[in-house]
Design a protein around this nucleic acid. Structure first.
Lengths: 343, 343
DNA sequence: TTGTAAGCGTTATCAT
DNA sequence: ATGATAACGCTTACAA
């Protein structure tokens, strides 16, 4: 009748406490706030724990305390260089803190995102970092119910769930295209792949700039839903050039595409920038090393990750930022691939 | 005197059970194995849970059941393209399973790795994926004490902690260098950055091949502990070429370095492969798109990630692979950058 | 198929 | 600074 659980065979806090000659709660305090103990007990608990090889049980801790030290992170892709920089920032900001990261991959799917948010809900994370600002209504409800600090990253917009760190993709693209216009390029193509919400906004920025200059022509736009790659850049460029032979510049939604264009130009002996200017997006490391060096829009990905985690950790400690939305901006890195063109 | 915990305000399993008119354990079974309930109770529990907005508490579950559905993954870097492919494989293999990933970053530090392993120990993960085979003795002790399936990935060797999926970096490098030798290149440089254990083994493979051909010359080797990058590739190449002006080929420990070499050759009007052959390592996507296309060693990174998780999940279910060590091999992707050279 | 009873290992609360 | 007690929400073991 009585319960006969197979004994865990695991060292518990109680046993450490017994060996140290203190109560369990004192031993518990030792692991969370050693300063709170008298020097004598502190040492006794410490040596008892070491002697028994005690390993605290995080699940028990989470259940008893009703909180965890896990920060959930939702990103849409792991293939993307862009997110590896964000992640680096995230993990760097974490360094030395007591938090750990639970990273999940939404695969650019809002339904997947919704599922994963529900999973997090069951986990009571201490905080959450979510990519983008286009969550489904249900996702928003879940997030609002979660009662923990949440930072939306990569872009900014009105109506944050809680906090935001990012920049305006629209403005960044507008600025890149305006740069080409200012340098006398006129027939500027747009090359886009895997048109996620942020890439869509870059397209809007392109359109705005071209329309403002009275040079908008929908034939200059080519996109594909397929994931991005260097070779895809070459292909898009080749296709567009066939349709628009007088194209004199391209704005690429990312640097991989820009590199693919450069290679395609080399292959076809198209001189860059004399016959074709190239501007990329994100400013990955190779852009400056290319021949010619490629102009790009630097986005502060590492800082976004770092800031997001700092904001979450601060908010957990009750420190709210002055403004809930942080615009990290962007910088146009002008290089040889978009040298001024004679008018 | 009695405990007055601030009520959680949270819907518990008990309440769902009460509303459904069943015992808590029946409700519990519904969430873990709905088939085990009679159709009537199943529906009543389901609607009760929905009505109350029940969210299970994973910590309570973990404590009561003494297990979690988290697989821990330790990787040394997030900046590295190589690991983003491994991660993609990992997350793809996970899709649809009940497991989630806890990803941690060792930063190529064995001490950090040891710390993180201890942290995992407190978490009772269902399984573990660890990068490389060079853990510290203490790390090995922790892993052996963890009593869960463990897969070491990226390389293979004797004496696995539990299971392994990878390939021989030594053989892969040997094969790449042998290819250059077979095509009549003689003064083959070695360019290496961030010399982690696997890169060290590639250096050994290079040495073995050059020695076997009677062409080994330590002056042909240049390395740096600094992290890898495209521009670093250009710099290493430039430095080595100054020291060894008659160099006719380079074996680069990764593709970023190879791309940097290509750009540097373009900059200096060194013809590839006529004046300089280039071979990279990993076969990132851009290698085939470059001009000329760059020869590289394809490593099955995605498959390593996928296999690792499949092996862990199978082992959790008691299914052990026939062999504990899986060699995924490599393929030499021969392209224009290493065309045969007239003898 | 369903239920009863007893914990899982820790921490919050209150008191000293 | 330390301790006694009662949970935290769920599942295991066993019985029916």
């Amino acid at each position: 009748m009585a319960r006969q659980r197979t004994t865990t065979g695991k060292v518990r806090l109680t046993e450490v406490a017994k060996l140290a000659g203190v109560s369990p709660i004192t031993a518990s305090r030792f692991f969370r706030n050693p300063e709170a103990l008298s020097a004598g007990k502190r040492e006794r608990v410490e040596s008892a724990a070491r002697e028994l090889g005690y390993v605290p049980d995080l699940a028990a801790r989470a259940l008893a305390s009703q909180r965890t030290e896990v920060i959930g992170v939702l990103i849409p892709s792991l293939t993307n260089n862009v997110f590896s920089d964000v992640l680096r920032g995230i993990y760097d900001a974490l360094q030395g803190s007591r938090y750990s990261i639970q990273l999940v991959n939404t695969r650019y799917s809002f339904l997947q995102e919704e599922k994963l948010l529900r999973l997090f809900q069951a986990q009571r994370p201490a905080g959450l970092v979510v990519t983008g600002i286009n969550q489904t209504p249900d996702s928003r409800l879940v997030m609002e119910a979660m009662n923990c600090p949440i930072v939306q990253i990569m872009e900014i917009g009105p109506d944050p769930v809680d906090m935001m760190v990012g920049f305006s993709h629209n403005k960044a693209a507008f600025s890149a295209v305006s740069h080409l216009l200012a340098r006398n390029y006129r027939r500027i193509g747009f090359l886009g792949a895997r048109m996620d919400p942020r890439v869509q906004r870059r397209l809007e920025g392109y359109r705005d700039a071209m329309k403002a200059a009275g040079l908008y022509d929908p034939r200059l736009i080519i996109t594909t839903p397929v994931p991005t790659s260097v070779s895809m850049g070459g292909m898009l460029f080749a296709d567009l050039l066939t349709l628009v032979p007088d194209m004199d510049a391209v704005f690429c939604v990312n640097d991989d595409i820009a590199l693919g264009v450069l290679f395609e130009c080399q292959r076809r002996q198209i001189s860059v920038p004399d016959d074709m200017a190239i501007v990329g997006f994100n400013d990955l490391e190779f852009m400056a090393a290319a021949v010619p060096p490629l102009t790009s829009v630097r986005t502060n990905r590492y800082e976004m990750g770092r800031n997001a985690i700092s904001m979450v950790m601060a908010a957990i400690d009750g420190e709210r930022p002055e403004a809930p939305v942080i615009d990290l901006g962007f910088q146009l890195m002008v290089r040889g691939s978009s040298s001024p063109r004679p008018a």
